[in-house]
Amino acid sequence: MELVGGIQRMEHAIQTPVWDPAWRPGVSRAVALLKAAFAEHVDRTEGPSGLYAGVVGDAPRLARYLTVLVDDHETVRSALDGLEGRLDSCDHEAVRCEATQLIQAMWEHRQRGADLLYEAYETDLGGET
């Protein structure tokens, strides 16, 4: 599953009323799918042949910004694990709040990544003839 689809599925799952018997299984499925999509995203971006390596090769001036994105990966992975561990909690509103914060963090991460790619490949630094 694509990361955007995973985020959107999570958004949809947490919008189900918490008293609905389908709420917990739906959120649990959404978390599992989002974890898988996020793991795939990390695999495609990090590592010697990942997207970030390409950015460093093409625009080395941006290498320090990649650290933020890699740190985001650890933060999101930890938050996903924490959310998964709290799904059995009876405090559905706290789980929903935590999921909402996670979703926001993931959208912000995607935006930082898009901004970095734009800077790497669309910004004209001049000097070309």
Rank of each mutant, 00 (worst) to 15 (best):
C97I: 09
L80K: 05
G50I: 10
L87I: 10
I7E: 01
G26R: 05
G54S: 09
S28V: 02
R44V: 00
S49H: 09
A32Q: 04
R61Q: 14
D124P: 01
G57E: 11
E98T: 13
P17I: 00
M10K: 01
Y121W: 07
Q8K: 14
P60L: 05
D91R: 13
A32G: 01
L62K: 01
E46C: 03
R29M: 10
E11F: 03
R64P: 07
T100M: 07
E84M: 00
V31R: 02
Q15V: 01
R96S: 13
V27G: 02
Q8P: 00
I14D: 00
L34A: 09
S49K: 11
V27T: 11
E93D: 15
A99L: 00
V95W: 03
T100Y: 03
G5I: 01
A32H: 01
Q15A: 15
Q104S: 10
H109A: 00
A79P: 02
R96N: 04
G85W: 08
G54F: 07
G47P: 05
Q15S: 15
R110V: 10
Q101Y: 11
M1P: 09
R44H: 03
Q101M: 13
D72A: 06
L34I: 07
Q15R: 14
E93V: 11
T45D: 05
L125M: 08
R86N: 13
V70Y: 06
D81Q: 12
T45R: 14
A120R: 13
K35C: 05
L34H: 04
I14V: 14
L3C: 05
M1Q: 10
V68W: 00
W19P: 00
V56T: 12
L51F: 09
R77T: 15
L116M: 09
E122A: 14
A39G: 08
E11T: 06
A99I: 04
T67I: 12
F38Q: 04
A99R: 02
G126F: 04
L69S: 04
D72F: 04
L3T: 09
P25L: 07
L83S: 10
Q15T: 11
A13H: 08
S89M: 09
L83G: 11
R112Q: 03
D88F: 06
E122M: 07
D20L: 06
T16C: 06
I103C: 05
D71K: 02
A39D: 15
E11Y: 03
E128W: 04
H92N: 11
E11A: 03
E108M: 05
Y118W: 13
T100Q: 14
A53N: 03
H41E: 05
P48W: 00
L34T: 12
E122T: 03
H12V: 07
T75Q: 12
A36N: 12
L87R: 05
K35V: 08
E98A: 15
A30T: 09
E119C: 07
V95I: 13
V4D: 10
T45P: 00
E2L: 05
V55W: 01
V31D: 01
L83F: 04
W107C: 06
A22T: 14
G50T: 09
V76R: 06
E46K: 09
